[in-house]
Simulated scan of single mutants.
Amino acid sequence: MKAPIRYRPHHFLCSLGFEGKGYSPDFTANMTAIVMGRLRVQDGESARIVVVTEADDICTPCPSRRGNSCESAGKIEALDAAHAKALRLNEGDELSWGEALDRMRALPDTILDDICGPCQWRGFGMCTAALKRLKSL
């Protein structure tokens, strides 16, 4: 059995909207391995995720990573707090990707305007489109 994926709260929606773009080639390859290799595969909904409040498995090769933190720590902590509240996540929670999808599916349609405000990727619309697709299933 694979170890649970360590996720910051805001990475749940980032993984939902991921389209193969990232901050660097190493970051993109790592996120592709996690999202496409563990979550978006047959039986991916059973993948286990543990919620953390520091650098996680997505952050590992990020060029902005500084130890267990980020050079944009204030912005990232605000994103994590907003996503944790919206998705009802607490540090140490363990859930399946399927359970995470159910929580994302239950979000109000316009919530990304509130919880993703400072995210530089929000303007591209990937997460909005992905959430809309998820809700239509």
Rank of each mutant, 00 (worst) to 15 (best):
V52Y: 02
V41K: 11
A3S: 13
G67M: 11
S24A: 09
L131V: 07
A81I: 00
T60L: 15
S72R: 14
D56G: 06
M104T: 10
H83L: 08
E54M: 12
A86M: 03
S64K: 13
A55Y: 02
D113Q: 10
R38K: 14
E19D: 14
P63S: 11
G123P: 08
S15R: 02
D26E: 15
C59Q: 06
S72E: 13
S15W: 01
C14D: 00
C59I: 11
T28N: 10
L137N: 03
Y7E: 04
S69A: 15
V41Q: 13
R105P: 06
G123R: 08
L87T: 04
T32S: 15
S46E: 12
C59H: 02
K85M: 06
G125E: 07
C127H: 05
C116V: 02
Y7A: 15
D56S: 03
R88P: 00
A73M: 11
T128M: 10
G37E: 03
R133E: 14
A82Y: 03
C14R: 06
Y23I: 09
T32D: 12
A86W: 01
G44E: 07
K75I: 15
K75H: 07
K135Y: 07
M126L: 10
G17C: 04
F124E: 15
V35L: 10
L79T: 08
T28E: 14
I76V: 15
I76D: 02
E19C: 04
L134Q: 08
R103E: 10
S96R: 09
W121R: 10
I49C: 14
T128C: 01
L131M: 12
L79G: 06
M36L: 07
I5M: 08
C116G: 05
G44C: 06
S69P: 00
L131E: 01
D93H: 13
A29F: 01
V50P: 00
A130W: 05
A129G: 05
C70E: 06
I49V: 15
G22W: 03
R133M: 09
F18D: 05
W121S: 12
G17V: 01
I111Y: 03
E19I: 14
L79Y: 02
A81Y: 02
K2N: 13
R105D: 14
M31C: 09
E45F: 05
C14V: 07
A55P: 02
D114H: 11
R103T: 10
N90S: 15
I34K: 03
P61F: 08
H10N: 08
K21E: 14
D80T: 06
E54A: 14
A33K: 13
I34P: 03
T110Y: 03
R103C: 11
E45S: 11
R6Q: 13
